[in-house]
Simulated assay, not measured.
Amino acid sequence: MIPVLEIGGTHVTAALVSPRTAAVTARVRRPLDARGSAGDVLGAVLRCARSLPSVPGARWGVAVPGPFDYAKGVALFAGVGKFESLYGTDVRAALLDGLPGSPPDVVFRNDAHAFLAGEWSAGAARGHARAVGITLGTGVGSAFLADGGLRTSGAGVPPEGRLDLARIGGRPLEEVVSRRAILSRYGAAAGAGGGVPGDRAPGGGAAGAGLDVREIAERARAGEERACRVLATAFGALGAELGPRLAAFGATVLVVGGSMAESWDLLAPPLTAALAAEDRPPGAARRPVRALLGEDAALVGAAAAAAA
């Protein structure tokens, strides 16, 4: 069994994973404050890791969002609204010093890459030669996979394979599709009395204060027009950006995961409509597929990297 960590914007998960069967056991999930101090963040991660049964001498796999130097294990978070206290921190050294079982090494993998690798080996992307995966949560993660290998360049692939570096209408993609973008747009629409969905006013406005995307989704299900419009605008814009990229890359499946995938009934229709609006070659992905493994996908992908 391979010990693994999956570090997200609001949580950290530790587990033991069999790279052969993709079985996940001894899972422990704890809340994580991505805006906390470096000591608080690393302390929370290590406390979660120490709750696992010890596996002496095993390499650990860690799925973590970028920007991050995965080869060196150094955090490079800046301007992304999370983990910025870790900038320049040698996370590998910190983990090796505190992880149980005296591990010989820690192998880091981009969380979206780990997610798609897991789904390709045992989930929704299994059997597809070319697949694209996106994770929607505090930010937007992405991975482009061809014949089991991750691609960071080529037709349809954004710079460094990172969809968050793409732009929509001249704006960074994460100003249109992300947790903070949706909250901002919902508040802007409220402040304008239900005005323009694309307003860029910061914050949440009085009517949107204290809400998270989950609550906005609940309001949309209850029929609130503003909530429906904000979510449809965000996911429709994402589909319009993804459509040409999927075609150029030759992807036959688009797998969607992350915390926002829990609102699949609200996410899938505008995303599907935008994808369907684009011309596609035969066999190309025309609709999104929800991840089958859920949070386990990144855990399985991290274990595969540690076992390699």
Rank of each mutant, 00 (worst) to 15 (best):
L242A: 06
A285K: 13
V55L: 13
A261L: 05
A146Y: 06
F83D: 07
A22S: 14
I216Q: 10
E262A: 15
R20F: 04
G193H: 13
A217E: 06
A305R: 14
T272P: 03
T233S: 14
V256H: 01
A166I: 10
A277G: 08
S178T: 12
A285F: 15
V64N: 00
G191K: 04
A209N: 09
I7C: 03
A297W: 03
D69A: 01
L96R: 01
R130G: 02
H113I: 03
G243D: 05
L95Q: 00
L99W: 08
A124M: 04
L145M: 01
S142D: 04
A38V: 11
G204E: 14
R171I: 08
A189H: 11
L52T: 14
R30N: 08
I182L: 15
A49D: 07
L136I: 03
L231V: 09
I168F: 14
D164K: 08
V213Y: 10
G148I: 11
E241D: 07
G257R: 09
R59F: 04
V256S: 02
A227V: 10
L96S: 09
A232P: 08
Y186N: 09
G66H: 02
G8R: 07
H11S: 15
A78C: 03
L76R: 13
D279Q: 14
G250M: 08
A44K: 04
G9S: 03
L183P: 04
A129F: 08
